[in-house]
Design a binder for these strands. Structure first.
Length: 255
DNA sequence: ATGGCAATAGAGTATTGA
């Protein structure tokens, strides 16, 4: 089973690119973030035409997540149990015995801001939820836009980013706390090219200069980690006309 | 030191992202 994650920064704008990408990357499951669409506007027909079920939780202007899957989704959840949150940042479903938790973790804006406090609260609620879900689903994937670069190797200039949002110690600790409950970063199971990132600022020709961060992740449980045969980031769509600022991450499991 | 780009809402410019 191939599972991918892609922050598309508006599905309205990026739908043609999603369909194009799926043609050459026919993954079983594609998780999207920042769809920025209310549910009534979700392009169900186009997605079904491409051979995928669509499971989504959207809102106006901001956030919004979706799971596109060839297998039918079951046991759909769109909220963290401990978080009374109007922002649509979670969609979970089970496909072929694999529990998939697709998350768009808050950005945090700047260290010390209200949005940063919200991000840290959100991460705590997520950890509790994942811990609970692991009891029921030994085959679990937690993936999405984490808005956290966990290690120095995930940042083009760790000194420049030290202490800044996306790379501050509390955020990195929260990422590590997710790992310690029994998850693995699939990307690090395999040798990777140096300076591999998943996000590049639109400004200052950041992509051309490869000034990026790796903030989009595919984590999985012990049972799936043993079955993980590949994990990579596909930079190709970032080179296309009018791209998302994020590139897709893809992992393969021998399920 | 700051803004730089893009998307959205909505009608000039503010907000958010990361």
């Amino acid at each position: 089973m191939k599972i991918a994650s892609w922050n598309v920064n508006s599905l309205r704008v990026r739908l043609p690119q999603v369909l194009e990408w799926l043609l050459s990357n026919p993954v079983e499951v594609l998780c999207l973030q920042e769809t920025k669409l209310v549910d009534e506007d979700f392009p169900v027909a186009e997605i079904e035409q491409a051979g995928y079920h669509a499971t989504y939780a959207g809102q106006k202007t901001y956030n919004g997540v979706a799971i596109l899957s060839k297998p039918a989704p079951a046991e759909v959840v769109t909220d963290l149990p401990d978080m009374d949150d109007p922002q649509r940042r979670v969609v979970a479903a089970t496909m072929d015995g694999v529990r998939v938790l697709n998350v768009y973790i808050p950005n945090g804006q700047s260290v010390g801001s209200d949005k940063y406090a919200y991000k840290m609260r959100w991460l705590q609620a997520l950890r509790a939820y994942v811990q609970q879900q692991l009891q029921s689903y030994p085959r679990l994937v937690l993936l999405g836009d984490f808005n956290i670069a966990p290690e120095d190797a995930d940042v083009h200039d760790p000194e420049l980013w030290a202490g800044k949002v996306l790379f501050s110690d509390p955020e990195r600790q929260a990422f590590h706390d997710l790992i310690t409950i029994g998850l693995h970063d699939t990307f690090r199971k395999f040798p990777q090219p140096e300076n591999t990132f998943s996000w590049w600022d639109y400004r200052a020709a950041a992509f051309r200069r490869n000034l990026g961060l790796r903030i989009d992740h595919i984590l999985c449980s012990d049972a799936l980690h043993k079955l993980c045969t590949a994990s990579a980031i596909d930079k190709e769509p970032r080179k296309w006309q009018r791209p998302s600022d994020h590139a897709p991450a893809v992992a393969e499991f021998a399920t």
